[in-house]
């Protein structure tokens, strides 16, 4: 059984279900990627795993424990971290304050963790006094990831971390994410850039209309002609 596992999740925002019996999991030190068309329910699945949306069926297991009943911030305390797709930084606060807020639930000294984030994203150190709202898109995403890393999560969930950044910055970000995974962190990530993302993925999930359409290793999905045709632009 996976380290983090959303099992047979069914639910939605109102009367209609968005997710149907959807299962998503990831192991420590590995990268799992969710791809799929717009509106497939990828973000919804992430929110469901993080407890930001009620589930009608199914449960979420973390490190063997059922966390389905916990509130998001309680999951943060357990060791989960989440970078939402939009509005993922405090725009009016400085970069360093963003990191401090990321560590809000910690009572110990956080200077080391801040230093680690700066090591990972050196540009942030330069900009640490600047309001996050004034940064470029790529730098903002770095702040967002850095904020989530401040609690030293065992699982890091990223919803489209490379949305709206240039290809160079995207490669850069993927490198950082691989680096984070090497620290024995489980990474669950939604990506629009399906091809590049599946290349670094240990496991890939293709979601369509809230269903698991394909689930396989990243390599296998890239090789699957049906997946290539429908989701990778036929290349």
């Amino acid at each position: 059984m996976s380290f983090l596992l959303g099992q047979q999740m069914t639910g939605g925002y109102g009367a209609a279900d968005i997710l149907h019996d959807c299962t998503i999991g990831v192991e420590r030190g590995e990268i799992a990627v969710i791809v799929g068309p717009n509106g497939a329910g990828k973000s919804t699945a992430m929110k469901a795993v993080f407890g930001m949306m009620p589930l009608r069926h199914g449960q979420v297991l973390f490190d063997g424990e059922d966390v389905s009943g916990l509130r998001p911030e309680e999951r943060v305390k357990k060791g989960m971290g989440f970078v939402p797709q939009t509005h993922n930084v405090f725009t009016s606060m400085s970069v360093e304050e963003n990191l401090e807020m990321g560590a809000f639930i910690r009572d110990d000294n956080i200077q080391d963790s801040i230093a680690q984030v700066y090591d990972l994203f050196p540009i942030l150190k330069q900009k640490r006094r600047q309001p996050a709202g004034e940064l470029s898109g790529g730098q903002r995403q770095q702040v967002a990831v850095g904020r989530a890393l401040m609690t030293h999560p065992k699982v890091l969930m990223l919803d489209e971390p490379t949305a709206g950044v240039s290809p160079i910055v995207m490669d850069e970000l993927f490198d950082r994410i691989i680096e984070i995974a090497r620290l024995d962190v489980a990474i669950l990530m939604v990506e629009q850039n399906a091809k590049q993302a599946l290349e670094i993925a240990d496991t890939g999930y293709v979601l369509v209309q809230g269903h698991n359409k394909f689930t396989d290793s990243g390599e296998a999905l890239l090789a699957n002609p049906e997946v290539r045709r429908a989701f990778l632009g036929g290349v």
Binding site: E73, F82, M101, F104
Partner: peptide
């Protein structure tokens, strides 16, 4: 202060503040 900053954070982005464990 930490509390003061958490107030600013909440005012800035309520959702993210909740995610960060701000009560």
């Amino acid at each position: 202060t930490r509390t003061g900053k958490s107030m600013r954070a909440y005012s800035d982005n309520e959702n993210l503040a909740l995610l960060s464990g701000i009560n």
